[in-house]
């Protein structure tokens, strides 16, 4: 067995949360830089130029990329021969979210009660933690600071397995295009297909952590990703919905087995401030 101390995990997590709050995924930035150089659309160039400038200034001026510094989301892969000493992973994540909130500082954006009280927890706890058990002794943490705007425009559909592929693509693209500027495009689009009701949502979230623009190993899904990306970018909504050809930076699909009666599809949107990192302890 391998033993890891709760304090050591918390320290690494806090550091990661602070780091991503000031630094967007470099591949996302690179895509926007290329589009900025190639665009002939005046407003799109203006908007992309401001986003690129922001990515440079955030680190220099020590100002988070976005005022919505997000909710901490962690997808953990935990080796079955690993023991965490001193606290549960949920407790560790909550402490790290709170520590980072005070230290950076980040905006307190978590409401303690979702419906009746809407009272701010004041320190960004609790975090959202998903744990998957894997072989071995390692602890891998996929960490994101997820903003509310793009999360609010995300959606889930329980389709009939007989739905034609063209219809599926159209429905996905239509919902994304309708979200306009609210999800803060250019977007990264995470699509979870299969599993069941809750599982496809988790797959969609996890798809956002994939290396930006990676090719899906299955040729059918790879083609689907490319087609959806191309359809979204033909809509003309553009960066921040101000027009142009760059509404989405990438589309990532993750899929899983599902019930013969079901075709669950979830789409999780990520704004252009793509704040995530993987760490391994």
């Amino acid at each position: 067995m391998r033993y890891l101390k709760a304090e050591d995990i918390q320290k690494a997590l806090t550091q990661a949360i602070c780091q991503i709050s000031y630094e967007s995924d470099p591949k996302a930035v690179e895509r926007m830089r290329t589009a900025h150089e190639q665009s002939n659309h005046e407003l799109e160039r203006d908007v992309l130029g401001a986003i690129l400038e922001n990515n440079e200034l955030a680190a220099i001026d020590n100002i988070p990329l976005c005022q919505d510094t997000g909710c901490t989301v962690i997808i953990a892969e935990m080796g079955r021969e690993l023991v965490i000493e001193g606290a549960t992973l949920q407790e560790i994540a909550d402490r790290a979210a709170a520590e980072a909130q005070g230290k950076c500082p980040l905006r307190a954006s978590i409401s303690y009660d979702p419906l009746f009280r809407r009272k701010n927890s004041g320190n960004n706890s609790p975090a959202i933690v998903h744990i998957r058990q894997v072989e071995g002794k390692r602890l891998k943490l996929k960490i994101a600071q997820k903003g509310g705007g793009a999360e609010n425009m995300s959606f889930l559909m329980m389709l009939s397995p007989a739905t034609p592929l063209e219809k599926i693509k159209e429905q996905i693209v239509q919902r994304i295009v309708e979200s306009g500027s609210r999800a803060c495009p250019p977007l990264v689009v995470g699509i979870g297909i299969g599993g069941n009701f809750e599982r496809c949502a988790l797959l969609a979230k996890e798809a956002l952590f994939e290396e930006l623009g990676r090719k899906h190993p299955d040729e059918h899904y790879a083609a689907l990703e490319q087609e959806i990306l191309s359809m979204i970018n033909k809509c003309g909504k553009g960066a921040q919905g101000m027009g142009g050809g760059l509404t989405a930076l990438a589309v990532h699909v993750l899929h899983e087995a599902c019930h013969i009666a079901s075709l669950p599809i979830a789409v999780n949107l990520q704004c252009h401030a793509h704040r995530h990192v993987d760490i391994e302890l």
Binding site: A50, L57, I63, N120
Partner: peptide
Amino acid sequence: IGGISAVLARTIVSCETYLWEELGA
């Protein structure tokens, strides 16, 4: 533009809580 906080922050001369501080952000 959303998500360009550092760019916008350079245009802020002052920022103070004015009403209902208990509401935080």
